[in-house]
Design a protein around this nucleic acid. Structure first.
Length: 1016
RNA sequence: GGGCCGGUAGCUCAGUUGGUUAGAGCGCACGACUGAUAAUCGUGAGGUCGGAGGUUCAAAUCCUCCUCGGCCCA
């Protein structure tokens, strides 16, 4: 810093201008991996755990993603939210450990392996099951590795070296153990339900394995003769009279009005209800006919028939009014309407099975059921209901079970078709014992068997076929064999929802509902959603006829039906212990090993040959519903229950749901204290992302192009509780916000380069600094309460607005003069440096959970010897800083300032000034409050002008005013004097010090000070 | 088709129990500075609060219907 007499001084060298290597442009795609590398080297995760030892635990339990592909934007959102929570709680004084998990069993992985087999011309069924399972395991392992890397690249912190996997041996052992808890407490039972079954492949199929193709089916209209009508005696009589009168009036009926005539014509007991179906083979399984109380029905009479088979003149039939004409025309019949039939009447009917007597069976009553699934769009308005062969049929049947049994009707569901597509003995006249042996629905090549033909023949024989035809329609096929599938009743394992006395609060449903009431939901509507689902759900089906998963580890006695382990088997604990031990050692494969049954049952039962090992596997929802048991409960570094579960709102039906049921059934409460849900990520236009629309965004691309912190900033800026949008424009907005934020931090770093750590007592600080401390105090409340409420957008918005509006545009702008120009002894400068430092520490730590990479870089730039910002805690605030009166006062000061800057803008437009330092306006204040507010303040400093004159005098006509600031008027004037070569302010005291003739008095003093310190 | 949720400037979000002229940041336009410089400061434009009815002295806010979108289910 030298100057010769000849050379002018380079005054910028005498200023404390910002100095920093911290780059303006982040280069995140390159920088972030370097930061990750550093975290790995220092083993940051382990350091975090050590640091937090002994603190109160906060546990966000991870909902496991499925290990079968790269991450999509939804995963990124989900994990980032979790990470922000984990990190913020860690920095707020908790021991906040995060253990990531993966869902590894299940269908999609099985498919992939089968697909590989097909590629090699191999068949799954030819491969030993444990070999197949090994390949599934390897596949899942691969994707756990890939996803793990992708999560780490997103900046997620957690125990990625020891994650939980549903396929870990210990997990499989505990999942089986949980299942056996249900068995032992009597909550597990063997029931049945219709599932989609491929006769060709001999396997059950899931919804996703089905494709719909055109198929020609046999369609039949079938008469169900009315067997009886509930007698309502007096009422019936009145009704008949009313009806006969009504008919007389409208139809020109000329009967004599005798009641007996009316009875003959209008009673329903000699009529039939007609149904339509495209699966004649399901008629032997018929147990009911469904109607809808929203549809209008009527009684019709055949008046003439074209054929001499089928319905004949005089036959009485009931149809939905809207569909009758179509049906009669189809059967070549002429008809007339006799009268309307009410829904109440239909409900009072009991029908005969159309095959009554065939093969000596079908003697049971067929009830009429009111069902929402019935429409009058097609068919007859009545729906043939075979609970063995249709989902709607099954559901209405099961839901009516109690009413049916009260009516003396057997509510059990028959197994009419076996896995080869043949009828069983449950279909009298068509099973193995019948003439010609068992009829077959579909043969092993996927062709129609003789079932339809034989059923139709039997219906004709009993004169209950109304009509027949063929129909081409969409029918479900297996996506592998492309052959048609059937719905068939199959044994399944269930958990009771409503069995009393097996659960904490009586039934599992009540226990789960009570648990929901004890849980906090964010957002609150989640509670209603989950409650509705639990209240309305049927029994929990646990079994899948699959290979890759944890088996349902029970044995069933084929003679007695007893299931072990079970409530009435005294050696249940020993049996389950053997199973759990074996699984811990060898995984669930042990169940499928050679001699497994003997190994587990040896010495526990006497008649081993009667016990069948159940080979169904558990629904994967049971796996993930058990994560709390094998992860939270097992790990020393976690706790049960979790503080928080966080997933997408679809998981009300999924993980929140299964975890609640599993835990309620085994522990009597939910495994979580709070449930947070996020919405789904849409494309920029608010629609779902899809390949075909070309509006997809991939986290990998965003990270590669802009950096993970940009993606994370997007997460922290949206209202994640609703659906969010992402796209190029939205990302650009976030990139812009990031730049502003980064530059503001950069300026602070540059300024703090001159900080020598001198402290000024709070009481000695200028008002402006005290105002900033007050604002920090307020922000501290905002930040902490919103991290506590999981509302990150308020934090992001609050901090960003603060940095833009109050720091960059005001405080920093005002303080530049003091920070750059004041001398080493200046209290004003030292106080400002101190406050900038306080701001820096808080802002950087507050944002560290959101922008872990950038805040790490920023922190280390200021504190090169520090380990990591993530090992820091949020800084506290002194309550001394709070000063509401000061804040209110400065609100007024800034109002006055706005009028001044507004006036200067006019000057600028008129080219009278450029820099605001060229101005020295006169401010007329005729407003008591505002005048009091600015009293004693350096308004030229605050407005960044060279001088300001305050006047209470008469306001000139051409003075500048703002509508919303009453009593303030500004007249601009150019500053008088000379421009100080150092501070650029225009003053009258430039040249006062002959040694430094180009600078103002203040600056000359500083230069003298520097000179004395040898710094000039 | 049913249940639930949502629609406020180009983008992201505020908007108390209904109560002045619906706000902010970014972006955009224009201007200034050239000591935060691919930065910084200032000014300005920009809204049928998804639409239509209704309740009320008063509606972005309450009610009904419609529409668009989402999740779950059928």
């Amino acid at each position: 810093m030298t100057d010769s007499a000849d050379n002018k001084i380079d005054y910028s060298k005498t200023l404390n201008l910002p100095q920093t290597d911290y780059p303006m442009r982040a280069g995140l795609p390159k920088k972030e991996p370097e930061i990750i590398e550093r975290w790995n080297e220092m083993n940051l995760y382990k350091r975090l755990r050590e640091d937090a030892k002994g603190r109160e635990k906060f546990v966000l339990h991870d909902g496991p993603p499925y290990a079968n592909g790269n991450l999509h934007i939804g995963h990124a959102l989900n994990k980032t939210l979790k990470d922000i929570i984990t990190r913020s709680f860690q920095m707020r004084g908790y021991d906040s450990n995060y253990v990531p998990g993966w869902d590894c069993h299940g269908l999609p992985i099985e498919w992939k392996i089968e697909e590989q087999y097909r590629g090699k011309g191999k068949n799954k069924d030819e491969v030993p099951i444990n070999e197949f399972r090994k390949e599934c395991r390897d596949f899942a392992t691969h994707w756990v590795g890939v996803q793990s890397e992708e999560f780490l690249r997103l900046g997620i912190t957690g125990d990625f070296e020891n994650p939980y996997l549903t396929m870990n041996f210990d997990s499989e052992a505990i999942i089986a153990n949980e299942l056996m808890k249900f068995a032992k407490s009597g909550q597990l039972y063997r029931g049945s339900k219709p599932i989609m079954w491929s006769v060709v492949e001999q396997t059950a199929l899931a919804e996703a394995e089905i494709e719909y193709e055109m198929y020609e089916s046999d369609a039949i209209w079938v008469k169900f003769p009315i067997a009886s009508q509930k007698d309502n005696s007096g009422a019936e009589k009145e009704e008949l009279v009313r009806l006969s009168k009504a008919i007389e009036d409208t139809d020109g009926w000329t009967g004599d009005g005798e009641l007996s005539d009316a009875k003959e014509k209008y009673l329903l007991t000699d009529a039939s209800v007609v149904i339509w179906t495209t699966t004649p083979w399901t008629i032997p399984a018929n147990r009911a006919v469904s109607y809808s109380s929203r549809i209008n029905y009527a009684l019709f009479e055949v008046t003439a028939a074209e054929h001499d088979f089928g319905p004949q003149a005089g036959d009485k039939l009931i149809f939905a009014e809207k569909l009758a004409t179509e049906c009669f025309e189809k059967a070549k019949l002429e008809f007339k309407k006799l009268r309307d039939v009410s829904a109440d009447e239909l409900g009072s009917l009991t029908l005969s099975h159309p095959l009554r007597g065939h093969g000596g069976g079908y003697e049971f009553d067929v009830p009429m059921l009111d069902g929402d699934h019935v429409t009058d769009d097609a068919g007859t308005g009545f729906v043939h209901t075979a609970p063995s062969h249709g989902r709607d049929d099954f559901e209405i049947w099961v839901s009516m079970r109690n009413e049916l049994e009260a009516r003396g009707i057997d509510a059990s569901i028959p197994f009419t078709v076996d896995d080869q597509g043949f009828y069983t003995d449950d279909a009298p006249g068509f099973g193995p014992e019948s003439d010609g042996g068992a009829a077959q629905v579909i043969d092993h090549k996927g062709k129609k068997g003789d079932a339809n033909k034989r059923v139709i023949a039997a219906l004709i024989e009993r004169d209950n076929l109304f009509s027949r035809g063929r129909i081409k329609h969409e029918y479900p096929h297996s996506w592998r064999s492309k052959k048609p599938i059937i719905f068939r009743n199959t044994p399944q394992w269930f958990v009771y929802m409503d069995k009393d006395g097996v659960c904490e609060k009586g039934t599992l449903r009540d226990t789960a509902l009570a648990a929901i009431e004890e849980t906090r939901f964010v957002p609150a509507v989640g509670k209603n959603r989950l409650r509705g689902m639990i209240a309305g759900r049927p029994d929990w089906v646990l079994s899948r006829q699959r290979a890759w998963g944890v088996p349902i580890t029970v044995f069933r006695n084929e003679e007695t039906g007893q299931v072990i382990p079970g409530p009435d088997f005294e050696k249940s604990d020993e049996l389950s212990k053997r199973i759990v031990d074996a699984f811990k050692a060898d995984g669930a494969d042990a169940w499928y090993s050679e001699g497994a049954k003997e190994r587990f049952l040896d010495g526990l039962v006497e008649d081993q040959q009667n016990w069948q090992k159940v080979d169904d596997i558990l629904d994967v929802w049971f796996d993930s519903g058990s994560t709390h048991a094998f992860c939270l409960e097992q790990r020393e570094d976690l706790k049960w229950p979790a503080d928080v579960y966080l997933e997408g709102s679809d998981q009300h039906r999924g993980w929140f749901h299964s975890s609640l049921l599993e835990s309620s059934g085994t522990r009597g409460r939910a495994p979580y204290n709070a449930v947070i849900t996020h919405g789904f990520t849409m494309a920029e236009d608010g629609r779902k992302m899809s390949k075909s629309l070309g509006n997809q965004m991939f986290p990998q691309d965003i990270i590669k192009k802009s950096g993970a912190d940009i993606l994370r900033l997007w997460v922290a800026s949206t209202d994640y509780q609703e659906d969010q949008r992402i796209g190029e424009e939205i990302l650009k907005t976030n990139i812009d916000s990031y730049r502003k934020l980064r530059n503001t931090l950069r300026w602070m770093l540059g300024t703090l380069a001159h900080d020598e750590g001198e402290k000024i007592a709070f009481a000695d600080m200028p008002e402006l600094e005290r105002l900033m401390l007050h604002r920090i105090w307020e922000l501290d409340k905002l930040v902490n309460s919103n991290y506590n409420n999981f509302d990150f957008k308020r934090i992001t918005r609050g901090l960003l607005d603060f940095m833009v509006l109050e720091l960059s545009a005001f405080y920093f702008d005002v303080r530049k003069d003091a920070l750059y120009c004041d001398g080493p002894s200046s209290v004003r400068r030292k106080a400002a440096l101190q406050v900038v430092g306080i701001l820096f520490d808080r802002l950087v730590t507050w944002m560290a959970p959101i922008l872990p990479f950038t805040m790490e870089e920023t922190w280390l730039s200021r504190y090169p010897d520090a380990q990591s910002v993530h090992l820091e805690q949020f800084r506290g605030c002194s309550d001394e800083w709070r000063d509401d009166a000061l804040a209110a006062k400065w609100k007024k000061v800034r109002q006055v300032r706005r009028v001044v800057t507004g006036a200067l803008e006019i000057e600028r437009r008129e080219k009278r000034i450029g820099s605001s330092l060229e101005a020295a306006p006169v401010v007329y204040i005729n407003n008591q409050e505002l005048s009091a507010a600015i009293k004693g303040l350096d308004m030229e400093e605050i407005c960044i002008t060279s001088d300001i004159m305050i006047s209470a005098g008469a306001v000139p006509d051409d003075a500048f005013t703002l509508d919303d600031v009453a009593g303030v008027a500004v007249v601009s004037q150019k500053a008088k004097g000379d421009k100080c070569a150092r501070s650029w302010r225009v003053t009258n005291d430039v040249g006062t010090d002959p040694e430094f003739p180009e600078v103002s008095a203040r600056d000359a003093k500083v230069l003298q000070e520097l000179k004395q310190l040898g710094k000039l």
